[in-house]
Design a protein around this nucleic acid. Structure first.
Length: 290
DNA sequence: AGTATCCTGGAA
DNA sequence: TTCCAGGATACT
């Protein structure tokens, strides 16, 4: 699922390809996906792209911004006229050869790329489960992460080891749902929580406050390690994630536990199990994760 | 802490 | 044909 590494990868792509473009029009094919007035976007130039946890912000030069959450299956794909149609939603067998397709709910029309008069670029928002959202809002309301639901401190940003130890130490919930609780700490979802816990050899069912200092420290570094791997590999294209050019990442080839129930633990060889914790699929090794 | 909600394609 | 996953939120 799109988590910190996936959204970071999209952000980097948009910073490279989208910034500098003027948005010439917005086509909200599925109205509910967009809230706020699209007239504030039309004619504005993209000045920057930011990320807060799993949330994205596209800043414009008119004091408005576009806040986006792609949730489970959102895709933000930049394309210009001469680029080949990007790959699309992987989970759906019936592949389409071109964009826009039936899952393209919003189209941002852009001005022409440099030196290509007459050819217009576009930014597509595809989302086959329609859980994501796009909100057009004054930039002043997006100064920090509070817009995305009072996000907790973020890995690689303001979540220091000290803060992590404090949060884990005083939480009564199981460690895995705590890692995924965006209000407590932001960026981690199901894939990286599962993999990080296996690397740290900690059971996902452990009550957070039962972890000792060494375990918390090990877990902190393990989570950062898998997140880094996720960023390096361009994210996990398990379901429908693609980067800003519609290309898949490769972290799914490096899954440690996620989606690997019935397969051997990469650490000790024990067959991995799948259970549910807090209603979410949880993959772990019953032998080495204690 | 558990459950319904949003939604769709695929698995059972 | 029914059931299920899943990020985040709203309830109970």
């Amino acid at each position: 699922m799109p988590e910190l590494p996936e959204v970071e990868t999209i952000k980097l792509g948009l910073q490279k390809y989208l910034v500098g473009h003027k948005i010439t029009g917005v086509d909200a094919r599925l109205k509910k996906m967009v809230t706020g007035d699209t007239k504030h976007v039309t004619g504005a130039k993209v000045t920057g792209v930011r990320r807060f946890g799993k949330g994205l912000v596209i800043d414009l030069d008119n004091n408005y911004s576009i806040a986006i959450h792609i949730k489970l299956t959102g895709q933000l794909i930049y394309a210009d006229a001469k680029r080949k149609p990007p790959k699309e939603i992987k989970v759906i067998k019936e592949m389409h050869s071109s964009l826009p397709n039936k899952w393209t709910h919003v189209i941002f029309h852009l001005d022409s790329p440099r030196g290509e008069a007459g050819r217009n670029s576009v930014l597509y928002y595809n989302d086959f489960r329609q859980f994501g959202w796009i909100r057009i809002i004054k930039s002043e309301k997006l100064k920090d992460e509070s817009f995305f639901g009072s996000l907790g401190p973020e890995f690689f940003k303001d979540l220091t080891l000290g803060k992590f130890m404090e949060i884990v130490g005083k939480s009564k919930v199981a460690i895995k749902p705590l890692l995924m609780d965006q209000k407590k700490m932001s960026g981690v979802g199901n894939i990286y929580a599962n993999d990080g816990l296996n690397l740290a050899k900690i059971s996902p069912q452990r009550k957070a406050s039962s972890l000792n200092q060494t375990e918390i420290k090990t877990l902190y570094h393990a989570i950062e390690k898998v997140l880094k791997k996720g960023i390096e590999t361009g994210g996990a294209s398990e379901l429908s994630y693609v980067n800003a050019l519609g290309q898949e990442g490769t972290y799914q080839n490096h899954f440690i536990t996620y989606g690997r129930e019935g397969k051997p633990c990469k650490n000790c060889g024990t067959i991995l199990k799948k259970i549910k914790i807090g209603g979410r699929g949880t993959y772990f090794c019953p032998t080495c994760q204690r």
